[in-house]
């Protein structure tokens, strides 16, 4: 199968996935008990108020019409207006997205930059002091909640030694600590997968053949073995990246960053239904897109994948 065919097939799958996800979201929201109009209106609302809210939400119309309208709005990324601020949901999300994206990219970058060299070293020098150091780091990184690490970093590097700002997102430097707190946890997870995958690849016969070619060990590790070991690493990095793109709620809270996580959190507090619905769909789309990109990356790294 050629690359184009493979990519086209994945693209079709992406579209189908998005359609199914949208459908599920639509019906789940309708199935959940409780009329949004009653919740929004509160106990003091008169029946005519409730009716007005229903008309505003569109929940008084037949389900099929609502479904068609919903799919149409997903297609346009138009999720209506926030019930609290009145602003379009799309622009609310897009305002916050750059910060979340930057944070996610930085977090992933830090994660990969730590995980891959340490993971490869761990795999090469298995059960050595270096390996144990890597494993301990990985264990701690996964066990320590990132908000706790964030608070620790703040105490140390913003209060005791004020190198970084305590909060805000007005400059790149203010993103260093939150990105680091996110990155360490990613590194811990990606490191495990890198180590396991590299150990497997280094035991394969083509590594012996590469040695028989006279290649230096560094080339054998970082070119021959790592390229083959990348598949599970890309998968896990993709999943982690997808999660971070949905907003890092707790980290944004700790560092007072206006990202998507806090936007959606407050939307839930305030029962801002259009915003919640838009947020869920947005996260689903982003997640699917990241998966699509990971699939494409797979097939570039290991063309054999295209056969399966």
């Amino acid at each position: 199968m050629s690359f184009i065919q493979y990519a086209a097939k994945r693209l079709l799958r992406l579209i189908l996935t998005l359609f199914i996800i949208s459908t599920i979201i639509f019906f789940v929201i309708r199935v959940i008990p409780g009329d949004p109009a009653l919740i929004i209106g509160g106990v003091d609302a008169s029946p005519s108020d409730i009716q007005a809210i229903r008309t505003k939400l569109g929940t008084d119309r037949p389900l099929s019409a609502q479904y068609a309208e919903f799919l149409w709005s997903v297609l346009h990324l138009d999720f209506g207006h926030s019930m609290i601020s009145g602003e379009p949901v799309r622009s609310l999300i897009l305002q916050r997205f750059p910060l979340t994206l930057t944070l996610a990219v930085l977090g992933l970058l830090i994660g990969i930059l730590i995980a891959i060299p340490v993971g490869v070293l761990s795999a090469v020098k298995r059960w050595s002091g270096w390996d144990y150091l890597g494993l301990v780091f990985s264990q701690l990184g996964m066990a320590i909640p990132s908000f706790w690490l964030g608070i620790l970093l703040l105490l140390l590097l913003a209060i005791k030694f004020p190198v970084f700002p305590l909060f805000g997102a007005d400059s790149f430097i203010s993103l260093v600590l939150p990105a680091l707190s996110l990155g360490v946890a990613r590194a811990a997870i990606i490191l495990r997968h890198t180590r396991a995958s590299m150990i497997e690849e280094l035991s394969k016969e083509y590594v012996i053949a590469a040695r028989a070619k006279g290649l230096p060990e560094s080339v054998i590790r970082y070119k021959h073995a790592l390229k083959n070991a990348l598949l599970p690493i890309i998968t896990i990095a993709g999943i982690e990246f997808g999660y971070m793109l949905g907003g890092a709620i707790i980290i944004e809270q700790v560092f007072s960053l206006p990202g998507l996580g806090r936007l959606f959190l407050y939307a839930i507090y305030q029962r801002d239904f259009p915003l919640i619905q838009g947020g869920v769909v947005f996260i689903a789309i982003v997640f699917s897109l990241v998966n699509f990109v990971a699939d494409i990356l797979y097939s570039i790294v290991n063309p054999k994948i295209r056969l399966e």
Binding site: E205, Y206, I208, A212, H224, N228, V301, N302, K304
Partner: peptide, 13 residues
């Protein structure tokens, strides 16, 4: 050196 099983000794990637 030439090995026994080319499928395994050639790098698949």
């Amino acid at each position: 050196m030439v090995f026994q099983e080319p499928a395994k000794y050639l790098n698949p990637a």
